[in-house]
Amino acid sequence: MLKALQIEPEKCTGCLQCEMACSYEAEGVFNPSKSRIKIFTFHDEGQFVPYTCTQCTEAWCMHACPVDAIVINEATGAKEVIDDICVGCKVCTIACPFGTVNYNTDSGTVIKCDLCGGDPKCAEACPTDAITYVDADHTGLDRMRMHARKTT
């Protein structure tokens, strides 16, 4: 059964534990600037919103890549960048409508969420369950449950 990241912005406090967990897993350092997931603060509205790759089926990044450096991990459904193949041309960063693929000046390759191979560290680190890793076919389950309760 495939799983997906479920993001509930109303639970986010903007602590950036997810950004640190992500960068630590991927780069071995606590470094929000290298995180694949980002928290956006909308100050006037008082909102914090986590945002990252949704592993979309269309996978514009993968189709745009001229050297086939982005492949699907069949076990997780994640579109993963193969560092050794990536040439750093950045075409995928243009193709992605959501901006969730980004160039890393340190490595000369692009970086994006790979679901940590099926054990996403952002979800593990989130103290408020604003990020969870759930059944990909039922990311709406909690919201359905909440509204279901109101109908009784």
């Binding site: 406090t13 602590c15 950036l16 534990q17 008082g46 914090f48 408020t128």
Partner: peptide, 13 residues
């Protein structure tokens, strides 16, 4: 109060 907010790395908020 609109929401609570955390400083960097804080799990209390």
């Amino acid at each position: 109060l609109t929401t609570n907010a955390a400083c960097f790395g804080c799990t209390i908020a």
